[in-house]
Simulated scan of single mutants.
Amino acid sequence: MINTQDIFSISSEDDFNAMALEIFKFQFETNSVYRSFCDLLYKHPSDIKRIEDIPFLPIQFFKSHQVLSSNDPIEAIFSSSGTTGSITSKHYVTDLNVYKESFRKGFQQFYGNIEDYVILALLPSYLERQGSSLIYMVNDMIQQSKHPESGFYLDNVSELKEQLISLDSQGKKVLLIGVSFALLDLVEQYQFQLNNTIIMETGGMKGRRKELVRAELHAILKQGFGVLHIHSEYGMTELLSQAYSKGHGNFECSNWMRVLTRDPEDALTLQSHEKTGGINVIDLANINSCSFIATQDLGRIALDGSFEIIGRFDSSDIRGCNLMVL
C-alpha cells in the first residue's frame, strides 16, 4: 500500500518519477476504468519504464464513469460546473484528508503560512451550486487563516470593497481569490490602490461575459485594483492539486504534480518543451482515482517546467473554472 505521506514529501525529480511509476502500477491493478483503457492501448506495467510511457486517461471519462482506485466509502463527490442539461464531470473522493493535505501543502509551498493571510473569497457562481472542490478548498483556507475578517462574499460587494480598503490600509496581508467575471464586476464598480493584497483569479467567465485572453484580463484587473501583478490558480474538478502563477504568465506545479504536452494531432505522442499541445497532468494526490489525466486544455511548457494555458480544444465544452479561452 502506498503511503500518502511519501507523496507529499517528494523533493526531487527522482522521487517524483519513482512515485509516479509506483502509483501507475497500483492504479493499473485497482482502477477498472483505467485498466480497461490501458488494455485497449496494449500498455502493461512491464512496458512502462519512465513517466513518459504512462497512458493518460482522457478527462471525459470522469463524465461517464466512476474513476476509482479504492474500495473505501466515498466521502465526497466533486462535480464540475456546466450549462443546463450538459453532462458534468464527477470526481469521487474516498479520502478528503488527501485533498486537504494537497491544497494546504501546495499553498504553503508557494505562499507560506496560511495564517499570515486574511482570505477573502469572491466566488458567486461556485457558491450557488453544490459539489465545488474550489469552494471546499477556499472554505478550509478561510478556517485555517484564523482571521475573523476572512470569509465569502456573494452579493455584498460594497462590504467587500470596504473590507479590502480597510485591511490593506492597516498593512494586513490579504488574499482576494475570485472568479474572473466577479473580479471584473468589482473593478467596474470601484477603483482600488492596494499595496498589501494579492489578487488571485481562478479563471472563467461562466457564460456571464465575453471570454478574454488572460493577458487582457490581467491588464484590466491590475489597473482596477492598483496592483503590479495578478496571480492565478489552475485547478479542476478532476484533480486534487493546484498550480499557481504569481503574475508572470506561467504556472508552477506543487512538488507532487507535473504537466506534459501531447501532440494535438496524435493524443498518444508527447511533445518536447516550448511546443503548443494538449495538457496532460500527473497529479499524484489523485492516488484514489486516477493520477494520469489528458485534459482538454491547450498549453505550452517552458524549459524550466512551468507552463502556460493557451486555450481549449475547439470540440470541447467550455468549462470555465480553470482557464481563459482565446
Results as ranks from 00 to 15, higher is better:
M1R: 12
S9R: 15
E13H: 13
D15G: 13
A18Q: 12
M19T: 13
A20C: 09
L21A: 10
F28C: 01
T30N: 15
L41G: 06
P45Y: 07
K49Y: 12
R50A: 11
I59W: 12
S70C: 09
D72K: 15
E75I: 09
E75Q: 14
S79A: 13
N97P: 01
V98I: 15
Y99R: 00
K100N: 06
E101C: 10
E101L: 12
Q108R: 08
Q108E: 11
F110K: 01
F110R: 03
N113A: 01
D116I: 00
V118C: 03
L122Y: 07
L123V: 05
S125K: 04
R129F: 03
S132G: 02
M141Q: 11
I142P: 02
Q143D: 14
K146A: 12
L164C: 08
D168S: 07
D168H: 10
G171W: 11
K173E: 12
L176P: 10
G178Y: 05
V179R: 08
L183M: 12
Q191H: 14
F192A: 12
M205A: 13
R209V: 10
A219N: 14
V227G: 01
H229G: 01
H231W: 10
Y234M: 03
G235E: 04
S241N: 04
Q242R: 08
Y244I: 03
G247V: 06
C253T: 07
W256V: 04
R262V: 06
D263V: 01
S272N: 06
I287A: 02
S289C: 11
F292K: 03
A294P: 09
T295K: 06
L298D: 00
R300L: 07
I301S: 00
E308R: 07
I310R: 00
G311C: 00
G311H: 00
F313N: 02
S315P: 00
C321W: 03
V325H: 04
